[in-house]
Amino acid sequence: MSRTSSLRTAVSAVLIALSCLLVPFGTLAAWAAYDLTDTGRYVTAMAPLAADPAVRDAVADTVGDGVAREAGVEDGANRLFIRDAVRSFTATRAYRTAWDAGNEAAHTAVMRALHDDSTGRVTVDLAAVTTPLKRQLTADHVPFAERVPVTHTRVALASPAELTALRKGYHVLDVAGFWLPLAAVVFAVAGIAVAAVRRRAITATALGTALGGAFLGVAVAIGRHLTLTDLPDRAHRPAAAAVYDALTTTLRTASWLLLALGLTVAAATWLTTHPHSPTTRLLRRRPAAPTTPPPPPPEPTRVEA
């Protein structure tokens, strides 16, 4: 191998390694910047959780305890009755309406705070939840639905310190979500272009992409384990697991796509170009097409005297 070929191979290896290293981080940043921050996608992802049994139990426990505390109920039987009533309400269409409205209001409030320069707490107005809830109850002809009060009570979602940290992280992800995937593609194309043997460069890039997808899938699983382990209340871990799985659905799908795409491209490259692959050997063994022999030259014409 000449010195020029060795240099091209080394440069190609560095560029491809950088590309494969950026694949999982770029995918993670793009997911956080474009999937989690989109209110419509967030509400759509969270909507099925309204019917999840673990989430319904967690809502019944939290809301039921809150109602009992506000009403001054200390008796265990009465608390259980209130919890069962809330649990029954979570099976209604009005609850699903309130669930979607609450998620939309909370996400909108957080995103609005991330985009402006306010230093106060992030709050959400409960009227954004009670208004569609009252409308749904009225449409279902629930007695006294029109008397449901629509109060403009603001509930805190994040403190000023938490908002500052969230804003910094959001700005970093907003930049990284665009540039990291773009850099991964540019490095991959450049690494293949300068390679002395492009077949090997394509195979290495494909395998590295598959490895990045596998790494991303493992990272999502580890993050799920750590998130659930850090929860102080073990009873709410099934609900937290359902929320985590709903939010990371796109990320897990992307990891499987990267793994499948990388392995497919690597296998196709090997089958079509490797000298010892079954496809190459089959092409070599294929008999050549028969050629038609040229016609014989015409006989000379005899001229009689």
Rank of each mutant, 00 (worst) to 15 (best):
residue 94 A to I: 03
residue 36 L to R: 11
residue 121 R to K: 11
residue 46 M to G: 00
residue 199 R to M: 11
residue 101 A to E: 09
residue 75 D to S: 10
residue 103 N to H: 08
residue 271 L to H: 13
residue 225 H to A: 13
residue 57 D to H: 14
residue 279 T to M: 12
residue 265 V to E: 03
residue 37 T to N: 09
residue 148 V to D: 05
residue 70 E to W: 04
residue 288 A to Y: 08
residue 157 L to D: 09
residue 116 D to Q: 11
residue 36 L to H: 02
residue 23 V to N: 08
residue 141 H to F: 08
residue 195 A to E: 02
residue 23 V to C: 07
residue 144 F to S: 11
residue 302 R to I: 11
residue 112 R to E: 15
residue 228 L to Y: 10
residue 162 E to L: 03
residue 120 G to L: 12
residue 206 A to N: 01
residue 304 E to C: 12
residue 42 Y to P: 00
residue 6 S to G: 13
residue 68 A to C: 06
residue 257 L to A: 09
residue 114 L to R: 10
residue 107 H to A: 15
residue 289 A to G: 03
residue 251 L to M: 03
residue 53 P to K: 12
residue 187 F to A: 14
residue 130 T to P: 01
residue 196 A to V: 05
residue 166 L to R: 04
residue 139 A to M: 11
residue 42 Y to M: 04
residue 107 H to Q: 15
residue 61 D to C: 09
residue 257 L to C: 10
residue 180 L to G: 03
residue 163 L to I: 04
residue 125 D to Q: 08
residue 125 D to G: 04
residue 179 W to P: 06
residue 47 A to P: 02
residue 206 A to T: 08
residue 170 Y to W: 04
residue 85 A to V: 08
residue 239 A to P: 00
residue 272 T to E: 01
residue 8 R to C: 06
residue 124 V to N: 10
residue 267 A to R: 09
residue 212 G to E: 04
residue 197 V to S: 05
residue 246 A to K: 00
residue 188 A to Y: 02
residue 94 A to T: 13
residue 249 T to V: 12
residue 29 A to L: 04
residue 126 L to I: 06
residue 284 R to G: 11
residue 34 Y to F: 15
residue 298 P to F: 00
residue 213 G to C: 05
residue 108 T to H: 07
residue 13 A to N: 02
residue 153 T to E: 14
residue 190 A to Q: 03
residue 264 T to C: 10
residue 150 V to S: 02
residue 214 A to F: 05
residue 41 R to D: 15
residue 197 V to I: 10
residue 143 P to R: 14
residue 255 S to L: 01
residue 211 L to P: 02
residue 118 S to L: 11
residue 204 A to E: 05
residue 256 W to F: 10
residue 29 A to C: 13
residue 156 A to D: 14
residue 246 A to P: 00
residue 134 K to W: 06
residue 176 A to P: 09
residue 191 G to T: 03
residue 176 A to C: 15
residue 160 P to Q: 08
residue 240 A to S: 10
residue 303 V to H: 14
residue 296 P to V: 15
residue 181 P to K: 07
residue 97 T to A: 10
residue 143 P to S: 10
